[in-house]
């Protein structure tokens, strides 16, 4: 059980981390380009609405059974929430703060790292929280396509009509979700305080 919980956490953490690595820089690039941002949001939104089992089935066709297909699905689903929240956070930075950062002659990367990202961080964390909770739920489906994590316990319990395994798996998923929710909420509170000085 512990091994399955750890595998589940690792699966979700990796998926969200990869999605954040793609979505946050994309938000930094596209937040100032409304037309391109709308197109990208529409694309990610469309991917987000694809039923998860259907997406997994397609991915298995190309990648095969196992964790890789599950990871790719997790990344695809996490992108939308992280990207949208990051864009919203970046756009909510007061214009005068952006202007002062530009007027000081800070290089673009320094404006991103030292001004824009810290000020948008509460919203970015909010996106990460939503994406993480979604991933924790979605990762259980990985058990259906040969992935690791609590999904294997749940699907095995389902196949064996073993109520105890089903409940154990479900409780594990809920516990991880509650833990993640608490951790992100706490982090968001700290970051929000810091961002407001």
């Amino acid at each position: 059980m512990i091994a399955a919980i750890l595998a589940h956490i690792a699966l979700c953490a990796l998926g969200v981390a990869v999605a954040a690595t793609i979505a946050v820089p994309a938000a930094l690039i596209f937040a100032d380009r409304p037309k391109a941002e709308r197109s990208l949001s529409a694309l990610l939104g469309a991917l987000y609405t694809v039923p998860s089992l259907a997406l997994l089935a397609v991915l298995v066709q190309f990648i095969g059974l196992g964790n890789t297909s599950v990871e790719v699905a997790l990344v695809i689903y996490a992108l939308y929430a992280i990207f949208r929240n990051s864009v919203t956070g970046l756009r909510s930075i007061p214009p005068e703060q952006r202007e002062v950062a530009a007027a000081l002659g800070l290089p673009r990367w320094k404006r991103w790292l030292q001004v824009e990202l810290p000020l948008a961080l509460p919203a970015i964390l909010s996106g990460l929280r939503v994406a993480t909770l979604g991933s924790i739920a979605l990762a259980t489906l990985g058990g259906y396509v040969g992935g690791s994590g609590l999904g294997t316990i749940i699907f095995t319990g389902f196949a064996l009509q073993n109520q105890s395994m089903l409940v154990q798996g479900a409780i594990g998923v809920v516990a991880i979700a509650l833990l993640a929710e608490f951790a992100f909420r706490s982090l968001e509170r700290v970051v929000r305080l810091r961002a407001s000085g």
């Binding site: 703060q97 002062v100 002659g105 800070l106 030292q114 001004v115 000085g197």
Partner: peptide, 22 residues
């Protein structure tokens, strides 16, 4: 070049524009 030029020009505005997180 714009950024190097701006680094040689001090700028302060009403309400100062200090960054709250720093």
């Amino acid at each position: 070049a714009i950024d190097p030029l701006r680094r040689t020009i001090g700028y302060a505005i009403q309400g100062v524009g200090l960054f709250a997180h720093l």
